[in-house]
Design a protein around this nucleic acid. Structure first.
Lengths: 169, 169
DNA sequence: GTCCAGGGTTCATTTTTCCGAAACACCGCG
DNA sequence: CGCGGTGTTTCGGAAAAATGAACCCTGGAC
């Protein structure tokens, strides 16, 4: 819970940390633009009741989300659900990029830049690392899907429907 | 967007339909308890600005969670409901044209131009791609209907039992 | 210094996907 | 019946990605 817009720096930090935020909007400041489901705001002064209602709702949402969004420990541990895997440096960086855009496409080049901020290695170094990353991700119930000629996408390993292969004679 | 608590029945319906809801809380009614990320609330009277801000934020969140209207991700992902399929380039273009006129007829001619802006390849390349597109679409509960000698029409695949055509003039 | 282990990178090969073409099966209408 | 407009299958070439294995670092142990 923080004041807005005075504590905007803190807000940015929380955004990065994927922590829930309740902004207390002061004065006539314009309403902040939320970037994810983990943010809500409220114009102060407000009733104690409303404040509590929003805080609780936010906490609930956060709980629902945290379990569904994997997170990357600064020490290179990828946690998801109740499991985790250690990742080597390059793969940490790749994973970071994928997590930033969890559920959406990350272009090959973007991923390559994330993995090797200064200078590209061989063309398919990326492929190899994606392969290794995939293997590790099996452990924690995540999957990297490839979107041909576009990039990759991280999502929870879909144990459900998809991937029905046609079995013929 | 609905009034609260007077329209609570409507709210329930929207919850069931997984549609985003913005509750305008009237009088001293207690703040409603949101059950998911698709709901927000606001005490009226409120400034036009705040209302818009919340509505927009909610729309954004809704888009991130479920898309009620099929939408084409700039990266070639077709999202609908909570599912998605990657589409290859040609099919992205075809889909774009169909989505622009979702629910209405797109002439063969127009579709071909959309798919191949500079010159169509073979005569039945379109047929083949429509077929392929159809196959992919049943994954996400959409369907392309043929209007003989007129064109094609995109709609949700009604798997259930309803045959409401012939309604239009 | 040498040796070793573990990641990181590249190479070569296999597998998957895309896309157009041709051939054929259909289906409703005049 | 024949015909035009569609639907479906199959084929081959090209391109992208996956994969396995070899190779090359670097840093610590001895």
């Amino acid at each position: 819970m923080l004041r807005w817009p005075v504590e905007s720096a803190r807000r940015a930090a929380l955004v990065a940390a994927q922590a829930p935020r309740l902004l207390l909007v002061e004065g006539g400041s314009p309403a902040p633009q939320a970037e994810d489901c983990l943010e809500d705001w409220l114009r102060v002064p407000a009733s104690e009741e409303d404040l509590r209602a929003r805080a609780e709702a936010l906490a609930l949402r956060a709980k629902a989300h945290v379990s569904t969004v994997p997170m990357l420990d600064p020490d290179g541990l990828l946690r998801f659900g109740n499991r985790w895997v250690p990742l080597p440096p390059v793969e940490v960086r790749l994973m970071g990029a994928l997590l930033e855009r969890f559920g959406t496409v990350v272009h090959r080049e973007a991923l390559a830049r994330a993995g090797w901020p200064d200078g590209a290695p061989g063309r398919n170094a990326l492929d190899v690392h994606v392969l290794r990353l995939r293997r590790r991700l099996d452990t924690v119930d995540l999957a990297i899907r490839t979107i041909r000629s576009r990039g990759y996408l991280l999502e929870r390993a879909c144990t459900g429907v998809r991937q029905v292969q046609a079995q013929e004679a």
